[in-house]
Design a protein around this nucleic acid. Sequence first.
DNA 1: CTGAAAGCGCTAACAA
DNA 2: TTGTTAGCGCTTTCAG
Lengths: 337, 337
Amino acid sequence: MKRTVTIKDVAKQAGVSISTVSRVINNSKPVTDEVKQRVLEVIRRTGYIPNPLARSLVTKKSQLIGVIVPEVSDSFVNEMLDGIEEVAKMYDYEILLANTYSDKEQEMKSLNLLRAKQIEGIVMISNKIDNDHIEYINSLSIPATYISKTAREYDINSVDISNKNVTYDMTKYLIDKGHKEIAFIMTSKDKTILERERLSGYEKAIIENNLKLDEKLIRYAGIEYEDGYESMMELLDENIVPQAVFVTGDEAAIGAINALNDRGYSVPDDVSVAGFSDVKIARIYRPKLTTVHQPLYDIGAVAIRMVIKLINNESLDEKKVELPYRIIERESVKSRN
Amino acid sequence: MKRTVTIKDVAKQAGVSISTVSRVINNSKPVTDEVKQRVLEVIRRTGYIPNPLARSLVTKKSQLIGVIVPEVSDSFVNEMLDGIEEVAKMYDYEILLANTYSDKEQEMKSLNLLRAKQIEGIVMISNKIDNDHIEYINSLSIPATYISKTAREYDINSVDISNKNVTYDMTKYLIDKGHKEIAFIMTSKDKTILERERLSGYEKAIIENNLKLDEKLIRYAGIEYEDGYESMMELLDENIVPQAVFVTGDEAAIGAINALNDRGYSVPDDVSVAGFSDVKIARIYRPKLTTVHQPLYDIGAVAIRMVIKLINNESLDEKKVELPYRIIERESVKSRN
DNA sequence: CTGAAAGCGCTAACAA
DNA sequence: TTGTTAGCGCTTTCAG
């Protein structure tokens, strides 16, 4: 273990005081050019790097932002992470990552751990946040922004897509393509406000267009591939073969397509399937998935940008940012007009 | 901003010295039970959390491990990240993440940044590491382990799958299934030792089984979906329609399947396709991809376990860990016997 | 413009 | 078993 070079070493070698060195590395106070060059030279020669721990200890700034995610390997999450990472780097923040596997206890634990690490801000991505999370984070008095389906229900900083009309729009799209019987597989069994809105978007489109609203066509599943597969199988087992299926998750949508295939139905020739999110696999799978594009990278980027602003005491234009979605027409939906 | 409670506050309120408080929070020296309880009580009441920055400053331990990855959103990478994260948590280490987009300059920059953050160890995942990386990391005298195709070429700690016979085994498998003309798409244009070995594994299997070794059947592409697609198209454009295609990457393999489909060939009925890695999509795609399973989660887990051991001055059983691979038979390869 | 000195919150000798 | 004290490496008054 070679001893690392400290500010003292630099000061001594440059023949100045440590305060002067501090001043040149931080550009905080005027320093004669001659002295500055001398110090810089020593720094270069010795390869000196200021110890951010010591610095943080006095400035109370760690340049660390905690990011809490359900699971890194989830495509939904990691596309956001790319955005988060990118922006963090831009502003010289480092990311402290914590996986929670959507377990609330683990979420609280991670929060605690991150807090201990003196993070300056938090980006919390969670399937479902509630008052406990919010109160705890508030009690930390650390800037935070949330990415969560339930964020809209609370008075907190959050970023999301403008969910209001998504399901309405996609259902309408499907109807416009000539589908009369449209199944709706919600990838959540919760009944949060968001889910109720999504459901009513679907219902509204159905009713407005004088189609029959059939409870049997509505299913509640999980978000995984298997969940979509099983839900679709369930439908098929009940001899329900809709003309179109709208699944609120891409992987689950692909599960549905596979279930359909396994039962001898062709997508989109026999039945159309639409997804939600536009993760990578939606572009790769065949038939390519028609889906709702969520700007995941941007969501992550905006979220962390918000906390950085907050950290710097800049004001936020809006507490709740909503990014636009759009329907991406690919191959899994066929016009039946 | 409420002032955070420090060890001093606790000491004062408990009527003891700060060293005593330090002793009880670290369990480092015996403390009378009575005093201990008193201190603990104050800690509980005040919600005191030791400042790890201050602690690190003196102990020179940050409980931080830097992880450098090409891209979080790459499925190959994020499955390893899950393993890394899990083990880190187990040993109370926090992960500092840096995305490099496989850019060498960025890799060096990230290394620098992480170094500055006083990380205690490094897990470096990189497509291609070279002497510059290694020398730099060595100069930091921080424990590191590498996950990289080129790691085997250097005398460094690394974890990998036992690559030696992979391509031989898969090619042999394909031959055993009755394929005579087998294309080999390498998802790399480099010619590292690993790539040469992979190539010769393929060649060995072909020759040993008295098949014709045809240079035209060997292609060099990138690792992405599109790369596989294009390489396959290239083959097809040259009127080469092999009975089987072995692509050394799952997403690229799926690209190849799609190219085949787009040209009217059915997989596996007309041509078999095998992949490499067994990332999530291999299980989801239809036909399900027959591929070489790499234990990505385990690779990540082992890698970080190694650096933790190193940090604690425990000796490593082996410098280069090789995890077993296995061929996963699914649907994209059909027997032609 | 520069240096001396205090102190960020904590651990670890060293004494007592 | 406990308290005192000297730092860890740095920033930041405060003088000069």
